[in-house]
Computed example of a mutant assay.
Amino acid sequence: MTEDPSSAVAPHDIIYPSTIPFLLVHLGCITAIWTGVTWPAVALCVGLYWLRMFAVTAGYHRYFSHRAFATGRIFQFLLAFLAQSSAQRSVLWWAAKHRHHHLHSDTAEDVHSPRQTGFLHSHVGWIFARHHAGFDPAKIPDFARYPELRLLHRFELAPAALLAGLCFLIAGWPGLVVGFLWSTVLVYHGTFCINSLAHVRGSRRYVTGDDSRNNLALALVTMGEGWHNNHHAYPSSARQGFRWWEIDATYYALKLLAVLGIVRALKAPPERVLRGEQRLGARIVDRTARQLAACFDALPHVPTRASLMEQAKAMFAKTPSIEDIVDRAHELLRLKSDKGPVAAF
Score class of each variant (00 low, 15 high):
Ala217Asn: 09
Ala344Asp: 07
Cys29Phe: 06
Leu92Thr: 12
Gly340His: 08
Leu216Ile: 09
Pro114Lys: 05
Leu274Gln: 06
Val259Met: 09
Ala198Glu: 00
Thr57Ile: 02
Arg52Ser: 13
Leu166Gln: 15
Thr191Gly: 11
Ala314Phe: 03
Gln311Val: 03
Val207Gln: 06
Val56Leu: 07
Val177Arg: 13
Ser90Gly: 13
Arg99Tyr: 06
Ala298Phe: 00
Ser90Pro: 08
Arg73Thr: 07
Arg52Val: 07
Val221Lys: 11
Ala133Pro: 03
Leu220Arg: 09
Arg150Asp: 05
Ala233Pro: 05
Cys193Ser: 13
Ile325Glu: 11
Asp210Cys: 15
Ile325Arg: 06
Phe75Val: 01
Leu186His: 08
Glu331Val: 04
Ala198Phe: 02
Phe64Leu: 09
Ser321Ala: 11
Leu216Gln: 10
Phe64Trp: 02
Ala343Tyr: 10
Thr117Gln: 12
Leu166Phe: 14
Ile33Arg: 14
Ile140Leu: 08
Arg204Ile: 03
Ala138Val: 08
Gln76Lys: 12
Thr19Leu: 11
Trp245Asn: 10
Leu218His: 07
Phe22Met: 06
Tyr206Pro: 04
Ala329Glu: 09
His189Phe: 02
Ile33Tyr: 14
Pro159His: 11
Leu24Ser: 13
Arg204Val: 02
Leu163Asn: 13
Arg334Gln: 15
Ile322Glu: 05
Glu246Ser: 03
Tyr60Lys: 10
Ser18Arg: 15
Asp106Glu: 07
Thr2Ser: 11
Cys29Arg: 12
Phe81Leu: 15
Ala87Lys: 02
Pro300Leu: 03
Ala160Gln: 05
Thr57Met: 01
Tyr63Ile: 00
Ala289Lys: 07
Thr304Phe: 01
Gly202Leu: 03
Leu103Met: 14
Leu166Pro: 13
Phe54Thr: 00
Ala238Lys: 03
Glu156Val: 03
Lys339Ile: 12
Val273Glu: 05
Phe296Trp: 04
Ala171Glu: 01
Val9His: 12
Leu218Ser: 10
Ala253Phe: 01
His232Arg: 04
Val207Ser: 08
Asp210Val: 06
Gln76Asp: 10
Ser236Asp: 09
Glu277Ala: 13
Ser85Cys: 10
Glu156Arg: 13
Arg279Cys: 03
Ile30Lys: 06
Pro320Ser: 05
Lys97His: 15
Gln116Val: 10
